[in-house]
Design a protein around this nucleic acid. Structure first.
Lengths: 154, 154
DNA sequence: CTTTCTGCAAACTGTTTGCATTGAG
DNA sequence: CTCAATGCAAACAGTTTGCAGAAAG
């Protein structure tokens, strides 16, 4: 039995599989193991490539099916930044947050502003709109890229 | 010469075409004419279907190319709600706004909360992130669908 | 007349699905 | 043993592109 967030993920996901009558295969264990190691926001193809680099071949079909289960189980979040592909992120039990996407390097950073959530709930309520979830993304240049590419004066 | 927002759109877009060395064809005029009439947020396919219903056949290629130009010229906005297709909306000179998307009927409603924009700018600045634009979407049930489908107690 | 526009079909990208084989419980 | 997991290739949806003929400037 593994420790820390690794153990948590395994346990949560195993519970989810059991209660859905699904199976925890050795391949799923191996992939999950590596998914935790690669932090951050990744697309399905990126993940497959990284795994291949580590000597683990996973078919697209299997990858997409696994990501779908991880999303359903709540272990992973799926994000759409409007770039034609989806990005997946291990929740690590984090609270909901929004994203800053760097258009230069593709890096993703998170931000959390409870005051914004409150205001947006108010806005929805005022229009009698029953909100379920939201997606709030800011696009621009991350600190690193601003420095590296002299974008200060833009 | 047409009046009101129609005339404005035509003039803006004509200027854009001229300054880019492009041509204002009769087909483009006709389509723009009808695009103004169909208010709201529409996907390329929806637009093509509506036009076909009015006896105007436009190929996908032409539609996508025109939408791309309308976006570049600033006459139309393009939105991605993470649904696998893009939606286009005539700007009508409106200020930037965010969206409420109804997962039941697909309807889109706008909201504008300057306080949120301010807070999000602050959040970005705090992380030394140079923001260019953002997209903020709330998903849920619109007032009509809540009433119609008795979703009050959800 | 030169260059862009248009429609068609083919290409492309990310994702999903059908099917035969493999493997977990 | 039974039902789910896997890999492969084919299918899919939205969008883009190459090309030949039509039309704008």
């Amino acid at each position: 039995m593994k420790n820390g967030e690794h153990g948590d993920l395994m346990e949560n996901f195993r519970d989810f599989l059991r209660s859905s009558g699904l199976k925890l295969t050795s391949q799923r264990m191996t992939i999950l193991d590596k998914l935790i190691a690669m932090k951050g926001h990744r697309s399905a193809d990126e993940i497959i490539d990284i795994l291949k680099g580590e000597g683990l071949n996973v078919s697209k079909a299997t990858m997409y099916r696994l990501l779908s289960l991880l999303k359903q189980s709540g272990c992973f979040n799926e994000h759409d930044f409007g770039l034609g592909r989806k990005y997946y992120e291990f929740t690590r039990g984090k609270k909901h947050h929004d994203h800053l996407y760097c258009v230069k390097c593709g890096g993703v950073r998170e931000f959390r502003t409870p005051a914004i959530e409150k205001l947006q709930d108010q806005a929805a309520r005022k229009l009698k709109f029953k909100a379920i979830y939201h997606s709030h993304n800011i696009f621009g240049y991350c600190a690193k890229c601003v420095r590296r590419h002299h974008l200060n004066r833009m």
